[in-house]
Nucleic acid binder design. Structure first.
Lengths: 150, 150
DNA sequence: TATTGTTATACTCTATAACTATA
DNA sequence: TATAGTTATAGAGTATAACAATA
């Protein structure tokens, strides 16, 4: 039972929730032999391929940081650089079959773990949180780094 | 206006909110010449000093990772290693005056930015989010890496 | 000239294993 | 023996600046 003095403000609630989710995400990635960043890259690529510049924007990283991340993930056989047929300068980063398989499994397990976090909320309370955070996400134009229906 | 098809599940809501808050936190730290990790260390140390092992638990890092983080933050003049009077093996990591000052300013500005994220929610909706996430935090024993009343 | 992506360089962050010093 | 913390090592993540190739 939450006592009144347990009530925290929305800022601390958001920051500490982020810390919690982050820890769960990292731990899940780790158990699949991924870093958090590589796991995030795989999740972004699940629905479709992207150019380096697009990934840079979506993930909020400098382009050269992306080069390194894709290098390492490619070296692990999880993604591939395909030429962009419409622009010889560009490439499309795509999941390999092994990458798609691992992404599926990582995604499923991470969803399972994150879903456990609000275990003590009622179904209706979970819907309420989802709806309100969904508006925060929408209004702040958060990129789709993790979609519920991949 | 959120249309029904904008409704996302609680898992995606949590993961994408974490991504958003993380980006804001990092960006704020960066503008104060801090990394996200150093900023987090300062925030944890605002209310009190801690031993290395305690910080390791609070931040979820290996002890040797803490050694490096404290080394770099100490080199920047923001924290200090004080001997633990009760155990010559132990130390207490403490904010220096410069560190306390920077922590205050970083904390205040970060709060301001995070508080803007739910700008389009009503006061009551913000309270609802805070209450529900507060329970998630409580039930998952999230360490106090960021308190609302430092 | 502007855009796409990579390279070179320099840090920071992190973990594992081995170590020192003290309880 | 167990605990507190550091060192050694290796790799991953990140940014800035300079670069190459193409539009």
């Amino acid at each position: 039972m939450a006592k009144p003095e347990d009530q925290i403000g929305v800022v601390a609630a958001l920051v500490r929730t982020a810390f919690l989710v982050n820890a769960v995400y990292s731990e899940s990635a780790r158990e699949f032999g991924l870093t958090q960043q590589q796991g995030q890259l795989l999740c972004v690529l699940m629905p479709q391929a992207y150019a380096m510049g697009e990934l840079s924007t979506i993930l909020g990283l400098a382009k050269s940081s992306l080069t390194g991340l894709v290098d390492r993930t490619e070296r692990n056989g999880l993604v591939r650089r395909d030429p962009d047929p419409r622009d010889p300068r560009g490439i499309r980063v795509t999941l390999t079959p092994a990458g798609a398989d691992l992404a599926d499994r990582f995604y499923t397990e991470t969803c399972r773990r994150v879903a456990e976090l609000p275990a003590t909320l009622s179904d209706q309370e979970r819907d309420t949180v989802a709806g309100l955070l969904g508006r925060v996400i929408h209004d702040n134009r958060v990129p789709v780094v993790f979609s519920e229906t991949p």
